[in-house]
Nucleic acid binder design. Structure first.
Length: 804
DNA sequence: GAGTTTGAAACT
DNA sequence: CAGTTTCAAACTC
């Protein structure tokens, strides 16, 4: 899984997104289900969410203070629990060995230029090795955990500014799930940010320990991960090693980090894998990244805040790295894939907003998730980053690389304290794998509807709400276990339950932000395609990643990354604007008649009937999408795009076909999009051109109407303000009694007294036998006097006295 | 709000 | 590819 921050996304070249970055295992689909939990006793057991706490986690902790220790696990079923390994040196090697076919060794050593550059496909070691290098400046002092799910969790002890990071105590505890290959590193780089390393899954193939040098016969994925702490540099160093699949993802937090991963092409799933993690980041600002820059491979993903410079994390894979200590890992869990998810750290000395990434990772994914906490003084490094702009939208993009996992299930990654929620969708992979995907992944723009998936692998990141939350809020409850992706606001899901090979040719035309997720009930082949908007509807930055347990070699793996626009608008501007609800009745919202469907969104809060445009009908929806794409591969691409050079910036891709509306009504798609008709239009009697008087008239009318609306709005605002001001001023007067309003003095008593006075005048007139006119005059005069008394007494006393 | 108009999408 | 039908939004009353 690779998650790339929006900012980094724009910086990454397309080739970085190449699916080669991920080498998928060639494990057959049948083997994939076991991939996630080979060590698990039961394959049928439901796949735990990544937030699930492993019942029997394997924990191997490395402490820099402790002498080098080698921990070897023999037997496939036995899993060390709570084992702690501490090394006195900065370089620490973890050797994971098992009695079965594959073994994995993890080496922690200082990052050097040679290490980074040495990440070549040439691998002689049969052992999967992961080297963690602190760059000589910062050691991996925190303990890390080797989980059963092919994950290593490295917990970096938070260090105060100026504190010696190399001496950081191994106080950090890590939790791992028993079935996964995940290990988290929290001690690397900066404090407070754990790094989770998900070891690639080898599928059903046993991961027995094999001697070094057997690499040729065994598939190897070595990745060099350099964690740079420099915050003031633009992060993105992504290079691709020759014939290597690299996968780097950085979870964005507040600071950008660069993850560099050079992965060697996997020869076989059982082959050794060496992971070298070079930590270029240190609190002192020193780093070895300069030497590493040429071998940068992988992707950087972060949500760096504008004020905080990104930090770099480089994952590099090297051969034959020296290791001081070795830890044996469960043999069944030979790492086949490396996925790094890092959370951007804050700027040094800046108030840390701890973005504690999820340490509770589901064991399914064969990924390495690196979570890096903010360093007090990040190392300086990082070369200029190549910028990849997709879709012409300057908005940041999210990129997630995820190999398709074997089990059709969704894993949720809980990130405590993080504003991001990660959901990893795991789906089965099929087909023989050549070991890597060849075509690069293209980026989808924020505005561009189509998600671009050109490769056999789809990498995509979609911010979503937590699975639990989504289930609660989704109007239509999910019916299958794999249906985790639902949103609070809207649901946008596309294309499930279809054989990926069938879908893939059209993946490039999927709606923006489409994410492939395992389709419930669709078997291992099913995928649910989640549109990009899906994320933006969530109104929060979260990522949905799809992980493949098959590892790097899965040929059918799909990597899709997409920027998630909302209704074609930037998330910043219109992220919260709900789409106009549809009113479909007969199309089941599975035709392009439905705007929701056409925009790759789920129907939510719509008035449609018999709606199938939701997660409950993933299969039908996927079929509908496929049908649409079959009819028109451009079906989900934005109709309004850039015109030819010299023409208007915006034009309708197909042009309208209006006959009677004169292209001056919203029936016309051109007019609706507020663009002029072009040569591509086949309209009759078109009046929607530049010099059209009708159009100008309409424009003027529209402008006038807009002005009126604005004026009305302003008037309403002013009136409201005045009313509010009046209430504000009158309220205290009434309550205080000092400046009371006149009517407040006409109390019941005053009225009674006044009436008595008037009656008395009437009685006197009657007694004197005055004419009626005189009587009325006397009464009115008395009433006038009463009023005068009331008024005069109003400013004197709260209770005016009236005497006749 | 009901009915009509319209043009894109779907179908043949 | 053209003609027809279907469909839902836009529009009118």
């Amino acid at each position: 899984m690779d998650v790339v921050s929006p900012e980094l996304n724009s910086l990454l070249p397309d080739e970085i997104m190449d699916t080669e970055a991920i080498i998928m295992d060639d494990d057959p689909p049948s083997e994939s289900p076991a991939a996630s939990g080979q060590s698990q006793p039961s394959d049928d057991s439901p796949v735990p969410m990544e937030t699930d706490v492993p019942a029997v986690p394997e924990i191997v902790s490395l402490c820099s203070d402790a002498p080098p220790t080698q921990l070897t696990q023999a037997g496939t079923t036995s899993t060390p629990t709570g084992s702690t390994l501490c090394s006195t040196t900065s370089a620490t090697q973890l050797l994971l060995t098992s009695s079965t076919a594959s073994s994995s060794s993890f080496t922690l050593r200082p990052a050097t230029a040679s290490t980074l550059t040495s990440t070549t496909p040439k691998t002689t070691s049969s052992l999967s090795r992961i080297s963690l290098t602190s760059g000589g400046l910062q050691k991996l002092s925190a303990p890390f955990t080797l989980s059963a799910n092919h994950q290593i969790i490295l917990n970096k002890v938070a260090s105060s500014p100026g504190a010696d990071t190399t001496r950081s105590p191994c106080t950090t505890t890590t939790t791992t799930t028993p079935g996964g290959q995940q290990f988290m590193v929290t001690a690397i780089g900066k404090s407070g940010q754990p790094i989770v390393l998900q070891l690639p899954h080898t599928g059903s193939k046993s991961a027995s320990v094999q001697g070094l040098g057997e690499a040729k016969t065994n598939p190897q994925h070595f990745k060099v991960v350099t964690i740079g702490g420099r915050t003031d540099l633009k992060p993105v160093m992504v290079g691709k090693a020759v014939s290597s699949a690299s996968q780097v993802s950085t979870l964005q937090a507040q600071q950008l980090k660069t993850v560099q991963i050079a992965k060697k092409t996997q020869v076989s799933s059982a082959g050794p894998i060496k992971f070298v993690f070079t930590k270029a980041v240190n609190n002192k600002g020193l780093t070895a990244q300069t030497s590493v820059s040429n071998v940068i491979t992988g992707r950087v993903l972060s949500t760096s805040s504008p004020v905080t410079p990104p930090r770099t994390i480089t994952l590099s894979e090297t051969l034959g790295s020296s290791s001081s200590s070795k830890i044996a890992i469960s043999p069944l869990k030979s790492p086949s894939k490396l996925t790094v998810v890092s959370v951007a750290s804050q700027v040094p000395n800046s108030p840390q907003k701890s973005v504690s990434l999820p340490l509770n990772m589901a064991h399914l994914g064969h990924q390495i998730l690196l979570q890096q906490s903010t360093a007090t003084s990040p190392a300086k490094t990082m070369k200029p980053v190549q910028t990849v702009t997709v879709g012409g939208v300057g908005a940041p993009q999210f990129k997630t690389i995820f190999p398709l996992s074997t089990p059709s299930n969704v894993q949720q990654i809980q990130v405590p304290g993080s504003r991001f929620h990660y959901v990893r969708l795991v789906t089965a992979t099929t087909g023989s794998s050549t070991g890597q995907a060849g075509s690069p992944i293209t980026n989808s723009s924020m505005t561009a509807k189509p998600m671009v998936v050109n490769t056999t692998q789809v990498r995509m990141s979609v911010p979503i709400v937590p699975a639990q939350t989504m289930k609660q809020v989704v109007p239509k409850p999910l019916t299958s276990s794999g249906q985790v992706l639902t949103t609070q606001t809207q649901q946008r899901l596309i294309m499930p339950a279809t054989s990926l090979p069938q879908i893939q040719p059209n993946l490039t035309n999927l709606p923006p932000g489409t994410v492939l997720a395992p389709a419930p009930g669709s078997g291992n082949m099913g995928y649910a395609v989640l549109p990009a908007q899906y994320v933006t509807q969530l109104q929060q930055s979260a990522y949905v990643t799809l992980a493949s347990s098959s590892g790097f070699s899965t040929p059918t793996g799909i990597q899709t990354q997409a920027r998630l626009p909302l209704n074609g608008l930037s998330t910043s501007g219109a992220a919260f604007r709900p789409r106009k609800p549809c009113n479909c009745t007969k199309s089941q919202c599975l035709k392009l008649y439905c705007d929701c469907f056409a925009n790759g969104e789920f129907c939510q809060s719509c008035n449609c009937t018999n709606c199938f445009n939701n997660l409950e009908h993933e299969t039908d929806r996927a079929k509908a999408i496929k049908a649409c794409l079959d009819r028109n591969p451009e079906a989900f691409k934005p109709k309004i795009g850039k015109g030819k050079e010299g023409e208007s910036d915006r034009r309708h891709s197909k042009g309208c076909n209006c006959k009677r509306s004169g292209c001056l009504k919203n029936y016309c798609e051109c007019y609706e999009a507020k663009i002029m008709c072009s040569s591509t239009c086949k309209c009759v009697g078109c009046k929607n051109f530049e010099e059209s008087p009708e159009r100008k008239t309409l424009m003027h009318l529209a402008d006038a109407a807009e002005v009126r609306v604005q004026q009305q709005t302003a008037a309403k605002t002013k009136l409201s303000s005045q009313i509010s001001d009046l209430l504000t001023r009158t309220t205290p007067a009434i309550t205080s009694g000092g400046g009371r309003m006149p009517y407040t003095f006409v109390t019941k008593e005053v009225a009674e007294v006044t009436c008595e006075c008037l009656l008395e005048q009437a009685e006197q007139a009657e007694l004197n036998q005055q004419p009626q006119a005189t009587a009325e005059r006397m009464i009115l005069e008395e009433f006038g006097r009463c009023l005068m008394r009331i008024i005069s007494s109003a400013g004197k006393t709260d209770c005016p006295s009236i005497n006749c």
